[in-house]
């Protein structure tokens, strides 16, 4: 690593078992172990979590909002992927 400035880490916290890890924020730390310890102090001072993930921010590949059209619009005209697309008689049950 050998740089003067500590790299940026993204912090994900599982609030309780049964729930997914959710993005809580970010912080700077020299390595993963310190990132984990800092995340404990910065993001879970009031028992907000039971598990923490940290990942160095540079390892995340994010989609570009400028490409949102080609990325996400193809799903917009596919109403047949939703149950409400299909017409059924009103009195049918358990479906």
């Amino acid at each position: 690593m050998s740089k003067k400035n500590w790299p940026l880490w993204e912090v994900f916290v599982r609030s309780k078992n049964g729930l997914e890890h959710r993005h809580f924020g970010s912080l700077h730390a020299p390595d993963a172990d310190m990132a984990l310890k800092n995340a404990r102090d910065v993001y879970t001072r009031r028992s907000e979590g039971v598990s923490i993930w940290v990942v160095e921010s540079k390892n995340i590949k994010a989609s570009n909002p400028d490409d949102n059209g080609e990325m996400f619009e193809p799903a917009a005209d596919k109403a047949y992927r939703h149950p409400t697309f299909y017409e059924l008689p009103d009195d049918i049950e358990h479906m």
Partner: peptide, 13 residues
Amino acid sequence: VRDAAVAYADKQA
């Protein structure tokens, strides 16, 4: 302290 933390991280790596 910051420098020592970086040196330690380098050594571990």
